[in-house]
């Protein structure tokens, strides 16, 4: 069974003004990035996946359950959504309580919830801040707390809305580690993001939305090699990929590591060739 099935979904906030048109795809465990410029319908799509909105046309199935037959609060056991602005959710005056709020809502016992919350705080490297007031921490730390407060619910599907925004290099590294950890734990990780370097380094599959339509859906490598299609949707591939294009490589790379190993092997080849001549 697929974790997510989106079937011919269209959505409009007001009559006939469709922000999503006839979208279909299925997702299994792994990592998917949904990209597209502002107004492409990314946020709407994510709200549909979370059951916060219901499709006007078509259906969204989460683990086989139609979102029309359930509520967002009930779906919380299966789908976790980390919002872009942590200030939209934080209301407890202790970090640990904030992270325990979700687990308690979905019926975990207090002990269970505390255990899960502490584990989640460990994952985001904020264990030592568990007794502090969230509003005494920096925005990027609050963002990690909002991530922990979803991880503690231990859902099969985790969705991130712009997790790397307002993060410094330390925070970005944390987010990348969290995504990799969730994927290796067999979860489905979905992100909407503008940070292409983040996509290139952490995501296997990429879905491109443009003006409410599904423009591309494929492996990150395939999607980012189609620079023309991307630029029509006002998107740029990761810096590393851009460099590959500028150097006229026949292959594109998405992460510094893959570029380095390719370059090194070619440099060696060239050196041995030069030596022969």
């Amino acid at each position: 069974m697929n974790l997510v099935d989106v079937k011919n979904v269209s959505f409009a906030y007001s009559e006939n003004n469709f922000v999503l048109q006839n979208i279909s795809f299925s997702l299994q465990k792994g990592s998917v990035a949904i990209i597209g410029q502002n107004g492409s319908g990314k946020t709407t799509l994510v709200k549909l996946l979370k059951g916060l909105l219901k499709p006007k046309v078509g259906d969204v199935f989460i683990k086989g359950i139609n979102t029309k037959d359930t509520t967002a609060a009930k779906l919380a056991k299966t789908v976790g959504l980390v919002f872009q602005n942590p200030n939209d959710q934080i209301f407890k005056n202790k970090v640990l309580d904030e992270v325990m709020f979700g687990p308690l809502n979905i019926g975990q016992s207090v002990d269970e919830a505390r255990e899960n919350a502490l584990r989640a705080l460990e994952i985001v490297s904020l264990t030592e801040k568990s007794q502090e007031n969230p509003y005494d921490l920096s925005l990027s730390e609050r963002k990690l707390i909002s991530i922990a407060s979803i991880l503690s619910m231990n859902t099969d599907i985790v969705i991130f809305d712009e997790p790397t925004i307002a993060q410094d290099c330390w925070g970005k590294t944390r987010v990348k580690d969290i995504v990799r950890l969730l994927v290796s734990a067999g979860k489905l990780v979905i992100t909407i993001t503008h940070d292409m370097d983040f996509v290139g380094e952490c995501f296997e599959r990429v879905i491109v939305l443009n003006k409410g339509k599904l423009l591309l859906d494929g492996s990150a490598k395939d999607v980012f090699s189609q620079e023309d299609v991307l630029s029509a949707a006002y998107l740029e591939p990761p810096y590393i990929t851009q460099l590959c294009h500028q150097l006229h490589y026949d292959e594109v790379f998405l992460s510094p590591e893959s570029f380095i190993s390719y370059y090194e092997s070619h440099r060696q080849k060239k050196e041995t060739n030069d030596a022969k001549h």
Binding site: K50, L52, A76, V79, F83, G102
Partner: peptide, 11 residues
């Protein structure tokens, strides 16, 4: 948006 965020956490 706050309502959405809290409903997402099972509220």
């Amino acid at each position: 948006s706050i309502m959405d965020a809290q409903r997402s956490r099972g509220l």
